[in-house]
Every structure is written in C-alpha cells, then in structure tokens.
Design a protein around this nucleic acid. Sequence first.
RNA 1: GCCAAUGUAGCUCAGUCGGUAGAGCAUUUCCAUGGUAAGGAAAAGGUCACCAGUUCGAUUCUGGUCAUUGGCUCCA
Length: 584
Amino acid sequence: METNEKLHNIRHSLAHLLAMAVLEKDPAAKFGIGPVIDNGFYYDFEFSKDFTLSPDVLKDIQKSIKKMTNKDIVFEGKEISASDAKKMFADQPYKLELIEGLEKDGKDITIYTSGTFSDLCKGGHVHSVKEIDPEAFAITHTAGAYWKGDEKNPMLTRIYGLAFNTAEELDAYLKQQEEAKKRDHRIIGAQLKLFTTSPLIGAGLPLMQPKGMIIRKEIEDYLWELHQHKGYSRVWTPHIAKEDLYITSGHAAKFGDELFRVQGKEDKFIMKPMNCPHHMQIFADNQFSYRNMPVRYFEPATVYRDEKSGQLGGLTRVRAITQDDGHLFCRQDQIEEEVSTIVGIIKEFYTNFNLMDGYWVSLSVRGEDRSKYLGSDEVWDIAENSLEKAAQANKLNYKRIEGEAAFYGPKLDFMFKDAIGRPWQLATIQCDFNLPERFDLSFANNKNEKERPVVIHRAIAGSLERFMGIMIEHVAGNFPLWLSPVQVKILPVSEKHSEYAQKVFAELAKNGVRVELDDSNESLGKRIRVAKTEKVPYLLVLGDKEVEAGTVTAERRDGAHIDACPLADFITQTKKEITTKEIW
RNA sequence: GCCAAUGUAGCUCAGUCGGUAGAGCAUUUCCAUGGUAAGGAAAAGGUCACCAGUUCGAUUCUGGUCAUUGGCUCCA
C-alpha cells in the first residue's frame, strides 16, 4: 500500500514537472488537468497558435524534466480562497473553470507550488523531486483529448508519460508492451494470412482469407452445435429492409447517422444494423400458443453499422459485424429458466476457449435519464428483476451498472479477460418487453387470450470478427488443434519419400484432418522453419525410418515428440483431440 | 467525427537537400536429394497510396482525398 502511494506521488509530481517543462517551451500555454493513470500520468495543454509540439520538442521536454529531478525542488501546498485562486489563474481559462466548479460544490481550493510554478491541485506529491529516479520515467507520446472528455468542448493536446519506481520496472513494462504487440491480431492475421483489408473495399471491412475462414467457420459451427439441441431453429434474413421497419422498431431514431442507407428505385432501404426486427417478423408470421413457447431463433448474421472512421481497426471494431445472434420469445414466467440455459451455453463456450478465469457480468440497467429508454417503469422493473434473479440463481459474479442498458431493455453483459489480462465485453443477454409491443407480437395464452411475449436477445461470441481477433491475441496465433487452419504438415525428408508422404497425406485427409504436404524444392531445415513460423500444431517428418516401418514421427508445436507411431494410431489420436477440442 | 503521426516491391525497411529508386525475405527458374528453425545461383517484380498545384522537371515541396497507427469521443 505504501509503495503504491509513493508511486502515485511520483507520477503526480511528474505531471507537475511536465507542466513546468512545457511552460519553458511555450510560456503562454494553457493548462488543463494532469492526473495519474495506470503506468504513468498525462497532462492536457492548449498551446499557443504558433507553437508546434514536434517529436524533438517532446524529447527536449523529457530532457528538461530529467534535469529538474537533480534539483531539490520541494512541493508546498496551501489552501487559498476562491477569489485569490481566480486572480492567480486569471490567464488560465481551464483552471478558472475548475475553480468555479470547486467553489460551486463548496470544496476547498488548494494550490501546490514547486519552484516558480504553482498549480491547482489537491495534493499527493513526493517531498522533493530528488526522490524521482530520472531513469524510471519517459515522456512517450501525444494525443488529442477533449476538455473534460466532452466532444463539444475544445480539443487539447495531451502529453503522456510512463513512470515507475525503478528503471527496471520501466524496462519490464516496455518489454511487456513489445510482447503484447507481437500478439496483435492485425500482425498475426497478416503473417498467417488469416484476413486482409483493401482500401478499395473500405475501412472497417476486413476480408477473410481461406485460412481465416476455416477458423471463423469452426467457431460458427461450434456455436450452432451448442444451440441445436436446445430448441433453437436456424433462420435467415436479408441484409436490407425498408426504412419503415426501423422506424417502427425505434432503431432509426436511435441509430441515426450510423445506418447505411440504400436508395432503391422506389423505396428507401437500410442495411440492417441488427436482426431483432427481422426475427420478430418471422415470429409474427405464426399463430403460436402458450404451448409453443419459448420459440427460439438463431442466425449468425452480418449487420452493418457506419461507425465513426477514427473508431475502426483490425477485426475488433468493424463496419460489417457478424453476430451469433439469437432471439427467443417466451412467457414472463419462462425468463429465468431461458436465461439459465443461455448462461450454460456461455459457460461451456468460454471454458472451451480458456477464457472463463476472471470473468464478470454487468447487470446493465437504466440510468437516470429515462428519455433514452423505451417503455414504462413497470415493465423495466420486471425485466431488471428477472435478469437479477437469473444472475443470482446461476451464481454469476455480477455487478449492477447504471445507465448501461440497451434502449429497449436491461442486459447481462459478460466480460472476459484474455491471456494478457485485457477485459473484453463479449456475450450478452438482453431482456426486452418493448419491441414486442412495438410490433404488436402475441401468442394465445391458456385462457385463449392474446398475450404479449417477452423477447430475449442474446449473443454468445458477440461478433465473430471481434471474437476471432481476441482469440488470435489470446493464443498468440497458436490455435488449438480443432481451430488450426492447417492441423498437420507433412515434410518428406527427400524426393525418395514423396510416395509414402502422399499416402500419409491421403489417409489423413480422408479422415477429415486438415493436412498439408510440403515437398517443395527446399532443404528440410528450411521447410521445418517455414512450418514453425506457420504455427502448425503437428509436424510429420517422414524419411527412411518411417517408410520402412510404416510409421510417422511427429513433433507437436509445444515441443512434445511422438516417435515411431503407427499411422493408424496417429490418425485416431488426432481425430479424438479434434472432436474433444483439446487444449495443450 | 476530432487531435496527431505514417504511407517507397507481396512483407520488413533503406534512399532521393527536386533530375522517375535499392536491400533482405517472399515469388519464378536452374543446380543441390537434404533427418528437425534459412543450401547455392539467376531472373522477375515499383505511376515511390491517389488527385490536384508550384516547377523546365515532383516519389521528394504545397493542398486535398483515401488508408493505417496512437489517443479522445462513441460502441444499441
């Protein structure tokens, strides 16, 4: 705890020093705020019009901060009146705004002085900047950031810095960042030829290469496998629909300029941004009774959203999103059981991908601004309570989060942590009393009256693109056998062994193993190297020994060896590992 | 969308203070028939992202567009 506090103080003090250094370069700079963040600190500035913050200037700033840490600069704090503070920061509009805010809230105003520089600040510094190790911090990069995080406000320039107790910790952090970069799904995706992009196709519209498509298809098939015996039916809906559909559903008003619009010869269409209204039309085509409920539809469907350009990247944020979408229509008294079934599917799915450790669930409910949501308080209360009960019944590690609900209903959002600890929102279960109302959906209850069904929206993987991107990074390209685009690669030692290699290849392929044969005109060492960089799970090197004995010699990606294994045994074992989705 | 950086061969990158470009890997062909992480040689490959402007001349300078990256904002 004490070391944490010290580190916090170092980072906070460095933010002050950063401001001091900036002041040397641009005496007329206006100051925003300079808080401590994970791994470091930042400070927001508005620079003079004629000042440019070049990379060289940034280096100079870092140099002058390092010099400061040699001096015995001491932080001294004192409480002052609002009027004094306003005088003191008369030429600092952002500071004035902060002072007025503090004054309004009746809070104390303190300033901290270090050398010739004073800043509005509630404290938490080192005593003297000499305590800061000049080798344990770095000014890293700049970015634009809206004042107070509101895009209506002016954009300031944010300077980021890293800071740790020791130079070793800084080094370790930088190394870890490098490791994370090697896992980047955009880099691995290009190396392993999983997907690509083209400026002619457009931003946020990645294309699946054959190898990427194998992974995607396996994930999709697995998802369907988890649903097909639980009462779900596959449906399919077109990619565009008339604008009226989304006016009725309320999505047109909600999504606004994020909708891709398609002008037909006569009608206005919209590229579907979600599938719910479509699935509701499928439901509406039937005369269901209470005996038929729940009715469950499943569709891995691509939807289109015109996300802001600056928001797009890789597979994790795209404009063509394929959801493993499902909607089920049920009676109110069935919600809890249905949610439990879905939770079961989610647990099985994520356990199999080794992602269950450290998960948590957000029970996302309405915020204070009720104008953002459809429907009455009464209906929302029922929906929120049903989800909470289901969360409790399933012993989910959940937290209630205000203001995170969908506009039509509350949700259970599942957060999972990947191999390097980054959290991702993936699965979601949403309870909806409102869209059925808008589309006037009904079934016949046991009194033969029309009753309104509840709709549960749910996605397990969330988006296939995003899930795939996360998986690539989670396993760093080392896919489990069942997901690997190439499961086994055969390398004949020389041309003499080609015939046997062909035979082994044919046997494996016949048994449904994804197998490649590399009999190219390259040295064996070269072909092994290529196979390793492709992260192929099993490598079979076949030479005189194997031909003679009719066996295979395999090396597993993790280094395990299988020597002189009869071909039939290798096939049986590989097939078993594939069907059980074994992870090693 | 906003702030900024970047864009040279399929990939990773040199280079040109304005006179139309080069390496390694990959590709193709030939030689070598190789037992666990790069055998050798040759060839081919570029409208220097795109479009304007300045200039005798632009890959290089200026402006715009597109794309990518890092942030901010957003993510039903």
